[in-house]
Each structure stands twice: as structure tokens, then as C-alpha cells.
Amino acid sequence: MRKKARRAGILAASTVLAAAAAFIAAPSASAGTSEIANPGFESGNASWSEYVTPFGGHPVNNSSAWPARSGVGKAELGGTGYTGISRISQQVTVPAYKVPVLTFWLRSDVVRADSPDFGFRQLVVEATAENGQSHELHSRMNKGGTAGAYEKVSLTLPDAFYSTSPQKVTLTFMVIEDNKNRMPFLIDDVSMEYRLKLISRPIVIPGTDFTRPVVR
């Protein structure tokens, strides 16, 4: 009788472990494709909202003075030579039950900190939910450049953007600067992927009680 009980306990425990392992190994790879329209800015500012103050302008351009990572289009934020803000934004729809991951390529050349022309320049990346609440995803200063090359940046949006129903999200790239120099932050090849979220839950098998020790 004890041997049967022991075998039953071991079998039940093995079943729970196998089920738990299968659950933990559930796929977390990309479960969606890019929702970003005009991700490489090859169609100019189509699908992107632009804002520059104090004098206006178009951050999205194909100027060869600051080359794109791919193609000819890119967003050139800051570097206007004036104290102000440069910003681009786009609204996307995040599917239900998906974790959004924002990826973009960034270039930031830097003036030496001891140079008399060194100026303040800050990049801020934000995501704004439908309720109007903004979440800062990334921030960096011009003291840390990318050595003249484009650097890949991937940002997982916080739990506020994981929902049981689709929701509209506004993505914003903004640069705040003073008037000391004209070196911009460059953004190119923006994309959004969606991953499955793993949620651990207790697995209950009918007819088993693991609160009591196995009879040996």
C-alpha cells in the first residue's frame, strides 16, 4: 500500500513539474510585426507629427550633412542653434495581450566637454497612453555620444501598456537644447515588436494534495 502511494505521489509530482516546465518555456519571441508607419522616414514626414520651437522647421529630412543609417531619410532632432525643443511623434495601436518593444537607431556626435562651444542637449523618448499619462522610456545627454555611428536602442514599454484590449499609444522623440552648438541627435529605422507575456500561475491537478508528505 505504501509503495503504491509512493509511486502515485512521485507520478503526480513529475506531472506537475513537467506541466510547469512546459508553461515556463512558453514562447516569448516576437508575436507581431512593426506597427510604425514610414519607419525609415523615406516618405518624408508622412505619418509623423513634427514640432520645433521657437522658429519651427522640419526635423525629418534627407540632408546629406548628417547621413541616414539606411536610405536617405532620417529625423534630425536638435542642432538648430537656438534654445528650444525639437520633437516628432506618431500614434500606434498596441494589440491586446502583447508586450510592446520599441527599437530605433540613434546617432549622437559630441563636442568635447571642455570646449567653449559645448552645450546642453538632451534626448527624451516617451510613450503616452490613451488616458494621457506619459511614461519616459529613455533619456540621455550629449556628453555620451555614439562615436559617429548609429547605435541600436531597444526599449520594452512598461506594464501600463499591456492590456486585455487594443490601445492607442503615442510615441515621442524629443530633444531639449540650448544655443551653444548645432549638433543634433539622429533617429532612423524605428520599429515596434510585440512579445507574449509570461505569467506564472499555480498548476493544480485534481485528486492531488501536496500539503501532506508523500507516504513512504
Rank of each mutant, 00 (worst) to 15 (best):
V124A: 01
T146V: 11
I187E: 00
T172F: 03
M141D: 12
I176G: 00
K143L: 09
V204P: 06
H135M: 08
V125G: 00
D117M: 12
I187Y: 00
H138N: 07
R140L: 11
H135P: 01
P184F: 03
S163R: 15
A160T: 14
T172M: 09
W105G: 01
L196P: 01
N131Y: 08
D109W: 08
G119M: 06
F120R: 04
V175D: 01
V190H: 00
A149M: 14
Y162K: 10
L198A: 06
G148M: 09
V110K: 12
T128A: 14
R195W: 04
K143Y: 05
S165N: 09
T164C: 05
R112N: 09
M174P: 00
L155A: 04
D188P: 05
D178W: 02
Q122M: 15
V169G: 00
S200H: 07
E136A: 05
G132T: 06
D178F: 03
G148S: 08
V190S: 02
L123D: 01
S165T: 15
G132Y: 06
H135I: 05
V111Q: 08
S139M: 10
K180P: 03
T146M: 08
F118N: 14
D114C: 12
T164G: 15
F173E: 00
D114V: 14
P166S: 09
L186Q: 02
S200V: 08
F104S: 00
V204Q: 08
E136H: 04
F104H: 01
N181K: 04
L171N: 00
V169S: 02
P184L: 05
Q133T: 15
V169N: 01
D178G: 11
A113P: 03
D109A: 15
K168Q: 14
L171P: 01
T172R: 03
R182Q: 13
F118D: 10
Y194C: 03
Y194W: 06
P116R: 13
P206D: 10
Y194A: 03
E177D: 07
E193C: 03
V190F: 02
S108V: 12
T172A: 12
M141S: 14
P166G: 09
T146Q: 09
L155M: 13
A113E: 06
N179V: 03
D159C: 04
G144F: 06
Y162P: 02
T156A: 13
F161D: 03
E177S: 04
A127S: 05
V175E: 01
F161T: 07
R201P: 01
H135K: 07
E130M: 08
Y150C: 12
Q133K: 11
D178T: 07
R201F: 03
T172K: 02
G207F: 04
I203Q: 10
S165G: 12
E126M: 15
D117F: 13
F173L: 04
F118R: 14
P184H: 06
D189G: 05
N131E: 07
R195H: 12
T208C: 14
Y194I: 04
R107K: 15
E193T: 13
L171M: 12
V110C: 11
A113S: 15
N131W: 09
S191G: 07
E130W: 05
Y162A: 10
